[in-house]
Design a binder for these strands. Structure first.
Length: 108
DNA sequence: TGGATGACCTTAA
DNA sequence: ATTAAGGCCATCC
């Protein structure tokens, strides 16, 4: 387990209900500008074991990155249950629901 | 065009 | 076999 992974996990765990974050944002805060894919990997692979709120992490477009899988619908259900308005196409209003963890010098 | 993004695939322990 | 870390490149705007 690397510091990067821990950071990512910590960030994800820090996302409150009703809020979401993007891969790029998480990866940037974690310290890797190009590490979005690792965030993806961590979510996909480790969330299952660690019980991370993977459903609160979406892509930078404000949409569900998943396809029409069961997980896709599951994520929408979870998000709506938390109060996040999810469009029929899986689009989420980042302006309202994107979570800003701390003051990030790297972000923005 | 160029830059940012990514729900994977591969290798290592 | 399982679990974790790492990355480069195609795709979209």
């Amino acid at each position: 387990m690397t510091a990067f992974t821990e950071k990512v996990i910590n960030i994800i765990l820090g996302i409150p209900s009703g809020k979401v974050m993007t891969y790029g944002q998480v990866s940037r805060i974690a310290g890797s500008p190009r590490g979005a894919r690792q965030v993806v990997r961590i979510l996909h692979g480790m969330s299952h074991k660690y019980g991370l709120p993977w459903h609160r992490v979406i892509n930078a477009k404000g949409q569900i990155a998943l396809r029409n899988d069961a997980a896709y619908k599951e994520q929408i259900t979870c998000l709506e249950m938390e109060g996040v308005e999810v469009d029929i196409n899986g689009e989420i209003d980042l302006a309202k629901y994107q979570w800003h963890p701390l003051l990030d010098p790297l972000e923005r």
